[in-house]
Write a protein that binds this DNA or RNA. Structure first.
Lengths: 249, 249
DNA sequence: TCAAAAGTGTTTCTTTTACACCCATGC
DNA sequence: GCATGGGTGTAAAAGAAACACTTTTGA
């Protein structure tokens, strides 16, 4: 017998949607789930428990979907259009035992959704389905499937916010392995901003932030000159996260 | 018989708080209300009707408190700390007939609050109390009274957001009279940013945005050289609002 | 030894800041 | 006529963008 959703214990009328970005093969991707019986995909989401901070709820949802619990997580917008959700999926929810007919009212009510974005190291993430979904997978930004409700709009705004926040905050800690090369970091920035950056100007700029430690190691094994490895200096990185960077891209 | 609050028709568990900024005598001020029977002040707030967009609700609240309905209005954060409100005011609410004992549960429940900030021309605003409050007044930022709940935190974040948004968006349309002088505009920027700006650099910069029309009129009557009047060119201003400005302060 | 990526330095241009002089007005 | 704030231009400094050559590596 499949477990069904029990609305007990959750704040009604408000949901969370998380746009979880990863960086892989030089491109940005997002983690999407597909609920049982649907062909459209969804952003990983959830609800807020009574007496739970929304940030904590988002952290919980992320942990459940990715197994990772220390992600950079940022609330960015409350989506409140009264017609943002549709009940066209409800029949499918009942047929697929996602929710019992007695509890379908919870889904039929008007929902606002609080949007969060997160940045995750995709190698650490283990996409995990829950009892409501039959798929949880990465999708590259340039090849997204259809999404339910207004999830596409939420995703697009998340990307815009990441691009803006990037102007003033360091990024990468959560998207890259602990040690990385300058070209890898640059490739991340180019993927997020969706534009090319001059190699020489990039490294000069990023070094001027004083958030990188130059290591005496090189990445070997690839063809061509072996690039030097760097890592973020934790203290400086955290300070910059809090206080912002002066320069911009 | 005083009218009491009826929670019927409103989405439970979520409220709105509006930080309405005005500009007067070269200083920033905010509109605050005081509920009957309380000594602490509040941000003007309200609730969202079923089937109402949160933005529309905020617009409605603003109109009720100020009489003005075309303000620049911006959602900036959902405050969701489960302990952000306190029920220490509830006894007073009942004693002052703000809410009946049967309806006090609506106020006792956990509330999240969606923060909006608005920019208003204070000469157009007619601060208006409602049946729950006995005062609605402007307070200068440098001399704020105690506020209930986490309203001080909301106010502070609103100010920070305005300062940030100012970097990329034109401002003034809603804070100044239709015609204004360059020193007046500069004084507004200085009040918001809380720092001095060089007169010559300011006017060069602001003119480079191409959102101002130089008028062949001067403000007369004051001592000293009569300053020239400007007005915003509506089309360019709106475009800049949407698309942002390239420069920053 | 060669193709391709990595590393670094210099020049140019643009933007920002700093600063000084003249002008107009009401008293 | 003078004190005070308003208007404008220019030079110096800082920051961003453009650009070219050398080094290293595996194949």
């Amino acid at each position: 017998m499949t477990k069904t959703f029990n609305p007990q214990g959750f704040v009604p009328g408000i949901s969370l949607d998380c746009v979880i970005f990863g960086f892989d093969q030089g491109k940005m991707k997002v983690l999407l789930v597909r609920m049982r019986g649907l062909k459209d995909w969804s952003l990983p989401g959830g609800f807020i428990k009574h007496d739970e901070h929304a940030d904590t709820a988002a952290q919980r949802v992320l942990k459940e979907r990715t197994g990772v619990d220390k992600l950079f997580l940022q609330q960015f917008h409350l989506f409140s259009d009264p017609n943002r959700t549709s009940d066209k999926y409800n029949q499918s929810f009942i047929e697929n035992n996602i929710v019992t007919p007695e509890n379908i009212a919870f889904f039929s009510q008007r929902f606002m959704s609080l949007g969060y974005y997160a940045l995750a190291n995709h190698t650490k993430v283990k996409p995990t389905i829950d009892y409501l979904s039959d798929a949880c997978e990465w999708h590259f930004l340039n090849n997204l499937p259809d999404l339910i409700h207004d999830h596409r709009e939420i995703l697009d705004m998340a990307l815009t916010k990441v691009q803006q926040d990037l102007q003033y905050h360091p990024i990468g800690q959560n998207l890259l392995p602990p040690k990385f090369t300058m070209p890898e970091l640059q490739s991340l920035y180019e993927a997020i901003l969706d534009k090319e950056i001059d190699r020489r100007n990039f490294s000069r700029r990023v070094m001027s932030y004083n958030i990188l430690e130059k290591l005496d190691e090189h990445r070997r094994g690839m063809a061509h000159k072996s690039p030097r490895l760097y890592r973020f200096s934790k203290k400086a990185y955290d300070t910059a996260l809090r206080e912002g960077l002066s320069n911009k891209w």
